[in-house]
Simulated scan of single mutants.
Amino acid sequence: MTQYLFEPPVVRSIPVKGEAAEYPVGRIFCVGRNYAAHAIEMGVEPDREAPFYFTKSAQATLMSGEILPYPPGTGDFHYEMELVLAIGKPVFRVSAAEAADAIYAYGCALDMTRRDLQQLGKDKRRPWDLGKDVEGSAVFAPLTRAAELGDIGPQRIHLEVNGEVRQDARLGDMIHNVAEIVADLSKYYHLRPGDLIMTGTPAGVGPVVAGDVMTGGIDGLDPISLTLAEAE
């Protein structure tokens, strides 16, 4: 048995409705600007040619209902409500039809973002890591098997801050649908079970402060919530 110099990171996992076993988190891929209205509010033209991606660490995983301290190094911490999909079998260089068959489950997610540090990265043509790969910034509600949700498109996606609606759209507003995203990403990675893909956020993103409570939902999926606490 392999010995380690220190305890390796704990495996993060997400409950799945109807399953005793949980879905272990491997890699977290995120799609940028996948709703046209959000791209515009970020000051750029929607790019319909192909998706683009950034990543978060598995250790950024936080479960719905938990409390997150306001993160260090930022004065502009934003919420982004998203649909996340969970890969259920290995795929590499697949068609959109094959990609759709590889989606095991869906869930509600929050991509929490240090917007000022993300913008600094953009301004200096540097990576977005400090803005996006933040401890506790990948928040997940329990997953629902894909077959139970059905075709993606008509479902409402929304987010409230302290009960006030801030984001409200339909999954059909995504520029690149879920099958197209998986197929495109499979050109660059051997996707495998444990891989999660956060599919982008609608317009209406904005800052939150300590004491704020975020709640969100997608029709047919378990809702999500997050409370922001004072900085440590």
Score class of each variant (00 low, 15 high):
144 T>G: 09
144 T>V: 15
145 R>A: 11
145 R>D: 08
146 A>Y: 02
147 A>L: 04
147 A>E: 15
148 E>K: 15
148 E>Y: 06
148 E>L: 11
148 E>H: 14
148 E>C: 10
149 L>S: 07
150 G>A: 05
150 G>N: 12
150 G>C: 07
151 D>S: 11
151 D>N: 14
152 I>R: 08
155 Q>E: 12
155 Q>F: 08
156 R>M: 04
156 R>I: 11
156 R>D: 01
157 I>M: 04
157 I>W: 09
157 I>D: 13
158 H>V: 01
159 L>T: 03
160 E>A: 08
160 E>Y: 00
160 E>T: 05
161 V>F: 00
161 V>M: 02
162 N>T: 00
163 G>A: 10
163 G>S: 05
164 E>Y: 02
164 E>C: 00
165 V>I: 03
165 V>N: 00
165 V>A: 04
166 R>Q: 11
166 R>M: 11
167 Q>A: 00
167 Q>Y: 00
167 Q>K: 00
167 Q>H: 01
167 Q>E: 03
168 D>E: 12
169 A>G: 05
169 A>I: 10
170 R>M: 05
170 R>T: 13
171 L>Y: 10
171 L>S: 08
172 G>N: 09
172 G>H: 00
173 D>R: 13
175 I>C: 10
175 I>M: 01
177 N>R: 12
177 N>W: 10
178 V>Q: 14
179 A>Y: 05
180 E>Y: 02
180 E>N: 10
180 E>V: 07
180 E>F: 06
181 I>L: 14
181 I>W: 10
181 I>Y: 03
182 V>D: 10
182 V>K: 12
183 A>C: 04
183 A>E: 11
184 D>V: 02
184 D>T: 04
185 L>E: 02
185 L>W: 12
185 L>S: 05
185 L>D: 13
187 K>H: 15
187 K>P: 02
188 Y>K: 02
188 Y>I: 06
188 Y>A: 14
188 Y>W: 14
188 Y>G: 10
189 Y>C: 13
189 Y>N: 06
190 H>F: 08
190 H>D: 15
190 H>Y: 11
191 L>P: 09
191 L>I: 07
191 L>E: 09
192 R>L: 13
192 R>Q: 15
193 P>T: 09
194 G>C: 08
194 G>F: 09
194 G>Y: 07
195 D>V: 05
195 D>C: 13
195 D>H: 07
195 D>T: 11
195 D>G: 11
196 L>P: 15
196 L>G: 12
197 I>S: 02
197 I>C: 06
197 I>N: 06
197 I>Y: 06
198 M>F: 15
198 M>C: 01
199 T>H: 08
199 T>Q: 10
200 G>D: 06
201 T>S: 13
202 P>C: 05
202 P>D: 03
203 A>T: 07
204 G>Q: 11
204 G>E: 09
204 G>R: 08
204 G>Y: 12
205 V>Y: 02
207 P>N: 11
207 P>A: 15
208 V>W: 08
208 V>F: 01
208 V>P: 08
208 V>L: 02
208 V>M: 14
209 V>G: 13
210 A>P: 14
211 G>W: 11
211 G>F: 12
211 G>R: 03
214 M>S: 09
214 M>P: 03
215 T>S: 04
215 T>M: 05
216 G>C: 08
216 G>L: 03
216 G>H: 02
217 G>N: 10
217 G>Y: 03
217 G>H: 03
